[in-house]
Write a protein that binds this DNA or RNA. Structure first.
Lengths: 276, 276
DNA sequence: TCCTTTATAGTCGTTCTGACCATAAAGGAG
DNA sequence: CTCCTTTATGGTCAGAACGACTATAAAGGA
């Protein structure tokens, strides 16, 4: 896994080749301001390569209280000061976008255990006028996890909160578009992957699994048919050994299941109506 | 559609806001070195934002001679001089990644008519060591089109050629991974979208459409069943008015069809065996 | 002790799918 | 001109999957 700079014709000073070999900058994981000397070789003019700032933005979903909720942060600065936005931040010189996404999320929410969080690259937003201040390219991620703790709003975020999807006004920048794209992607992936289990704790009932589908898709599903489909799909879920059952609810106790080893669903579990 | 720089804490000089308005660099379509003054405001320290070079890489597929072919260019410089690579290049300061992708492709292949080409963002590759020279983030695209003209190999590319998928050795950088990801994505999208028609000219036979599926998936399909599925999907294809038929081939002349207006396929046309 | 709620099992008719077989219409070989 | 091969197209048929239901079980609450 190396990488591009395609067939670059841009005159690259010979001294550059040796630069990124030094891993001196890799350690700067918690710094918010990148080490200025880390990736910039002596005598290298970064403007020759049209420098961009690279950020990550995260559309983090969870299912809480039977509703699809999104993690938002309140901006403390212009532009869009006071407006809600998706969490995110700058990619540091020694980070991949994936690494930066997890770091930023941890910083801004104070949630330390992100192990159960499913992170997935959505797409990159690179319109030249995305940010009124400067040229910023943002790698967007869709993330989903089980009912996570209340965010603390640390790091660069003034505040951080779970908000029910659709109950807030326009977000900062192009975050409305990113969020809508993320929602569409998640909904589509539920059809042909076992992604839904990422919304749930390690052990769950089929009723809870169904609620994930219903919440994300916004449609009601027939319970017996849903159950039949899920159980008919090999390795989608497997019963918890010992016949453990969840009680305490209103009705008959439900059997507990764990996520299986399947990555894809065959056949897919299609949404009732058309794909869009 | 604006954009991120999330809740930026990095002190941004006020003078920056006016910067990207200047479209001075947009014209530099054939320039290999971007205008250095275009996006860099006075008094702005780019290192505070960890400048990255941003490139695009394209995995361009077509079906030729019954085989899936990929467009490759030969690198003329180190690193990986003489190695085959995916076409691509630097994003200019006033371009989106999509715009840069089409420009680079036109430059490096000499193919002027890219209108029939379907371009789709794949994902962004941002591992810190992707490029041995410097920090480069690459937005990868999957592209597919009907049998395109022979590439001329202009622009930054020493040579450009169609090569049957799988008939070449290791590509430069992480382009092997990008290409594999693109192939997987295309194969998956054939299942639930009408993307296959992008591989074909405006008018085509069902046999040609089936060959696209067979070529991309690498599996044989039952002809009557394929036909039944395709015709049963509303708006996937529509017959050419007047009952035009393609003759000149070996067997019975085939009816001609055009791409319909459907974007998604319901129900999907699943690959014979599991999804991966 | 009902009543409500949720889980789970099963039925039934329709639709879809995969594996076939059959026929039509072209070009090529002899 | 006559087979033969090739490709297109039209069917059949049994099994699988699906959607809409009905029925029963097991909990808590009134």
């Amino acid at each position: 896994m190396n990488s591009p700079v395609p067939e670059g014709d841009m005159t690259v000073p010979e001294g550059i080749a040796a630069v990124s070999d030094g891993d001196a900058a890799v350690s700067g994981r918690t710094a918010t301001v990148p080490d200025r000397t880390a990736t910039v070789p002596e005598g290298y003019d970064p403007y020759a390569f049209a420098p961009f700032a690279v950020t990550v933005d995260l559309a983090v979903f969870t299912v809480r209280d039977g509703a699809l909720q999104v993690l938002l942060v309140e901006r403390g600065q212009e532009p869009y000061a006071g407006r809600w936005a998706l969490p995110g931040g700058f990619v540091l010189p020694a980070e991949s976008a994936e690494t930066a996404a997890r770091r930023e999320l941890a910083e801004e929410t104070g949630i330390s255990d992100l192990s159960g969080l499913h992170l997935e690259q959505l797409r990159t937003y690179s319109e030249p006028d995305r940010d009124p201040r400067m040229r910023v390219v943002s790698v967007a991620f869709a993330a989903l996890g089980p009912d996570l703790p209340e965010p603390r709003g640390g790091g660069d975020a003034a505040r951080a909160e779970w908000r029910p999807y659709g109950t807030f006004g326009a977000l900062a920048f192009d975050h409305d578009v990113i969020l809508a794209d993320a929602h569409e992607r998640i909904g589509a992936k539920l059809e042909y992957s076992c992604l839904a289990t990422s919304f749930l704790p390690p052990e769950f009932t089929l009723g809870e699994l169904q609620q994930v589908y219903e919440t994300v898709w916004g449609t009601a599903l027939d319970r017996p048919n849903f159950r039949r489909k899920v159980l008919a799909t090999p390795k989608f879920v497997e019963p918890v050994p010992g016949g453990a059952r969840l009680t305490g609810g209103r009705g008959k106790p439900a059997a507990l299941y764990r996520a299986g080893t399947a990555g894809a669903l065959h056949p897919p579990l299609l949404r009732p109506e058309g794909r869009l």
